[in-house]
């Protein structure tokens, strides 16, 4: 490169123009349509079935039983790998994906999202099982379940066993 070599570079730079993004000073659409970002819960649709918890590879979604009649669906964005498998498996379509990538924070508690569910109470033993929203969902889909849905799975099992015992002439308590 001689004395006037920089002119060549000026020509190349002129052809290329300005490539640097002006973000964050100017709002720009930086991400494509296919970009997967943070997920969002619709609390009116979520039934607390735990299908997303089963599907989540890094356990970013967790179901926590608080023991006081509430069931928490916890979403920790800091562990999420944005695979969107939870969206695929959700039976009610309560989870929607966003294109949101601006998630940086200086407080780790900002990265939690919680959906609070009420647990259903068994009419026979008073134990807690499932959630009220899941009960409603099942009755809506299959109305015949209404006769036994207010009992917990254990009580339902015992009822069947007792019925079988009666049929076979066994001892009925």
């Amino acid at each position: 490169m001689g004395k006037l070599g920089f002119i060549k570079i000026l020509v190349i730079a002129g052809e290329a123009g300005r490539v640097t993004r002006r973000y964050p000073f100017k709002p720009e659409t930086l991400v494509s349509e296919d970009f997967r970002g943070r997920i969002e819960f619709d609390e009116t649709k979520c039934i607390g079935c735990g299908a997303c918890v089963n599907a989540c590879p890094p356990n970013a979604l967790e179901l926590v039983d608080k023991g006081d009649g509430t069931l928490l669906l916890k979403y920790f964005i800091g562990r999420c790998i944005f695979c969107w498998r939870c969206i695929d498996v959700c039976p009610t379509g309560a989870i929607t994906g966003t294109r949101d990538f601006e998630l940086a924070t200086n407080d780790v508690s900002d990265l939690y999202e919680v959906v609070v569910h009420e647990r259903a109470e068994c009419s026979e033993c008073g134990g807690k099982y499932s959630t009220i929203r899941q009960k409603e969902y099942v009755v809506e889909a299959v109305p015949i379940t209404e006769s036994y849905i207010d009992k917990c799975p254990d009580c339902r099992k015992n009822k069947l066993l007792r019925a079988l015992e009666r049929r076979r002439g066994g001892v009925y308590e």
């Binding site: 964050p24 000073f25 819960f41 609390e43 009116t44 979520c46 039934i47 607390g48 964005i77 949101d100 601006e102 998630l103 940086a104 924070t105 200086n106 508690s109 900002d110 990265l111 939690y112 999202e113 919680v114 959906v115 609070v116 569910h117 009420e118 959630t131 009220i132 929203r133 409603e136």
Partner: peptide, 17 residues
């Protein structure tokens, strides 16, 4: 230069009956 956009959220599931 920018504002913090994310915050923790607690949502309560809505029961119909």
């Amino acid at each position: 230069l920018v504002e913090k956009k994310i915050s923790s959220k607690v949502k309560k599931a809505v029961r119909r009956t």
